[in-house]
Simulated scan of single mutants.
Amino acid sequence: MGALLVAAWLAGGALALLGCAWTLHLLRRPQPQPTAEPPVLVVVPVRGAEGLPRFLAGLAAQDWPEFRVVFAVESQVDPAVPLLRAALPGRSALVLAGPAARRGQKLQNLLAALPALRPGDAALVTLDADTAPPPGLLRALLRPVLAGQAEIASGYRWTLAAPGAGWAAQSLALVDAGIGTLPRCAACNICWGGATAIRADALARLDLPRLWDRAISDDLTLTRAARRLGMVIYAPLTVRPPGEVAGDAASTLRFGIRQYRLLRLHLPRAWALAGLAAGLPVLGAGAALLGGHWAAFPAALLLQAGRGWLRRRIAARVLPPGEAARVPAWQPWLGPPAALLHLAAWLGSAGGREIAWAGRRYRLGAAGEVLRLRTEPG
């Protein structure tokens, strides 16, 4: 049994290496382009002003010719409001969504912005304000939905540890890089709310006001509905906006548990697969240590070094040069703590239906719907 676990661990590492190599190959392939550049609506739910100037600068630099932006905040007292009122003059608007009573506050903000859609808008784009979108992000995100490849396109955050961040933030960046640099398939793609485009004809079928009425997760709820309706979710590999993390071990673990708990409630099969990916390195390394399979460790380090080299090559193609230079080539000392933290987050998500998020605590139903919420003190 121990030898099988070791073999499975190394096989998983080899498959991840091949996946990175295939992603690099796919990035070189030419892609079909849309024949027109129609107007689109971009919706950005915002809470707080931390990192917002960087996001607004990236949004203003987008090279898509016709896009309007609606920023949505909970209330007038949000510190982001002065910045948002001055952002992108002539093509932006600000809406006050009010406090959520039956859904996640992010969903409350998104729904408050939807009436801004116009009949001529070719797509709806949702972006998170805690990233730094490069100038071509909108074009890369809209390309597959306007070129007829899919009804929905969605990217993934490239997580970078902030300068001076500790091992936990670096571990989160390492785990996220492993997810973000793998190739995608239409049957298993999952939407990420930080950068998603939905074609206009799909919006009517999805009925977002109904879909998001009691939801807490915009992207996982959207993924589940799209699969049920037979829609294709395309994942453009160049849509990887960078975002920084700097939390300690406790906050990073809470974040991981929350994300995996949401995944378990919305997409349990994907959650189980994530558990296999999280558990295999720890079980395999433990079996190698207990069974004296010492040759497995240099082999695992060699595979890790290969993945690090390929991820640097991928980063050079999808991130701005300054951000790509921050992606480490190899962190051999970080593998064990990152694997343990990853597995702890997944195990911590195995039970419970409560989510603490942005100052609110939500009680969820078996399918991830909000049953009740309360505002936490402070």
Rank of each mutant, 00 (worst) to 15 (best):
L5N: 06
V6M: 04
W9I: 05
G12I: 00
G13N: 06
L15C: 02
C20Q: 08
C20L: 05
A21S: 13
W22M: 05
L24C: 04
L26H: 09
R28L: 13
P39T: 08
P39F: 11
V40L: 13
P45N: 08
E50V: 14
L52M: 05
R54N: 07
G58N: 06
A61Q: 15
A61Y: 11
Q62E: 12
W64A: 15
E66G: 11
Q76A: 15
L83D: 09
R85F: 10
A87I: 14
R91F: 10
L96Q: 10
G104A: 11
G120C: 13
A122I: 10
L127N: 04
D128E: 09
D128I: 06
D128V: 06
D128K: 06
A129L: 01
A129M: 01
L137W: 01
L146E: 05
A150F: 05
A153Y: 06
S154R: 09
G155H: 06
W158Q: 13
G164I: 01
A169T: 00
S171T: 01
S171W: 00
V175K: 08
A177N: 01
P183H: 03
A187V: 13
I198T: 04
R199G: 09
A200K: 07
A200Q: 10
A202V: 04
D213Y: 04
R214T: 11
R214D: 10
T223E: 12
V232M: 12
A235W: 11
G243Q: 14
V245N: 04
A246Y: 02
R254S: 12
Y260W: 11
L263A: 12
L265W: 13
G275A: 13
A278H: 06
L280G: 09
P281N: 07
A288D: 12
G292W: 15
W294E: 12
A296Y: 09
A296H: 08
F297I: 11
R307E: 08
G308A: 00
P320K: 00
A324S: 01
A324Y: 01
A329C: 05
W330E: 01
W330R: 00
W346M: 02
G351W: 06
R353E: 03
E354W: 03
G359E: 01
Y362K: 02
L364W: 05
A366Q: 02
A367N: 04
L373K: 03
T375M: 10
E376T: 05
E376K: 07
P377D: 04
